[in-house]
Simulated scan of single mutants.
Amino acid sequence: MSNGEKILVIGSLNMDMSVKTPYLPKAGETVLGDEFTMAPGGKGANQAVAAARLGCPVTMLGRVGKDLFGEQLVENLRNNGISTDLIITDGSHPTGVALINIDEQAENSIVVASGANKHCTPEDLQVLGKTVDEFKILMLQLEIPLQTVEAAAKLAKQHGLTVILDPAPARQLPSSLLQLVDIITPNETEAFILTGLEVHDAESAKAAAAVLLAQGVKNVVIKLGAKGALWAAENRSKHLPGEKVNAIDTTAAGDAFGGGLAAGLAAGQDMLSALKFANKVGALATTKRGAQPSLPTLQEVEAYFA
């Protein structure tokens, strides 16, 4: 996929601090954890790294603090072959961090302190200048302010880019944004928050997807975890079963899926082929611990599913 079109990712950069626990603590409860790890994260950076490791040319736009974490996160992107020319160093706010608990069933709970990510403004998009025409795909998430996400989507549509939105962390979204989105990729929880419909299988996902299509989204891809994904567009829908792997940590599996989808489309695959590839990338990411450490290379995906 190294000959694919360029991908632009606008979003968050965080330092992830993860603790393995026997179970996720209840309110007011202290749990003795086990293994502690610290690794680069943030949904934006995760998706940028996911696509880059699959061989795509990727550029990231976002904010980090003027601190050690910020330096480490930018250096990590460079080490993954990602252009960091559009990343802004914020001298007034710290780099974002995420606190992650992971239980023995590989489920997680995450608290994010946004830091500099919260101050990524529509004005920051001016650093793009005329370079926006160089890109084919824009990847967006919701760990930066909503007005910045909508401004980026509007700019992308003006220049003919395909807009992929991962609506996480989940919140209600205005129709003015949804109408700019070519592909939205919620998981089951996010689909419920967006539509008010419970999602637990392909059939219920199809119903939720219909609501989002009616609001103006061109393609809806609902991630169903081990049950795969449901793709719906005008007059058609398709359930893609999950890939069977030995999952130990679901952190960043959705970001891996998004990176796989963008990479497939950037390489010229049709939507169905790109989704099948994304399913494999997302599944393989669950076989390793951590966010970015779990994101597979193209060679790893091809070897595992050979």
Rank of each mutant, 00 (worst) to 15 (best):
S2H: 13
L68H: 13
W231K: 14
A106D: 12
A51T: 03
A106R: 09
D90L: 08
Q141A: 08
A214I: 07
L265A: 03
V19H: 08
V132T: 05
D270L: 09
D90Q: 10
E104A: 11
L142N: 13
K206Q: 13
E123F: 00
I102D: 12
K157N: 03
M139Q: 09
A263H: 05
L155M: 10
G33F: 06
V281F: 11
G96Y: 09
S109E: 15
I144N: 05
F36L: 13
L54D: 08
N187P: 10
G196H: 12
E190H: 05
E134H: 14
A205V: 02
L61K: 03
G70V: 00
A252Y: 10
Q147V: 12
L8W: 06
L261E: 05
G216C: 12
L295A: 06
P122H: 02
K43R: 04
W231A: 15
G42H: 07
A168W: 09
D103K: 01
A48K: 14
V217Y: 03
T251Q: 10
L125W: 04
E198D: 12
E75W: 05
G42M: 06
N80W: 09
I10D: 04
N46S: 11
A168F: 10
S109N: 13
R78P: 03
S204Y: 11
G228E: 09
V97P: 03
G225T: 11
P296F: 12
A51Q: 04
K244Y: 01
E234L: 01
D34F: 10
T297S: 15
D103V: 03
A207H: 12
H119R: 08
T131L: 02
A152G: 05
N279S: 15
P186I: 03
F36Y: 12
I110S: 09
A116F: 07
D67W: 13
A191Y: 10
N117Q: 08
E104F: 02
V19E: 08
N246H: 10
P57N: 15
N3W: 07
T148E: 04
N187L: 13
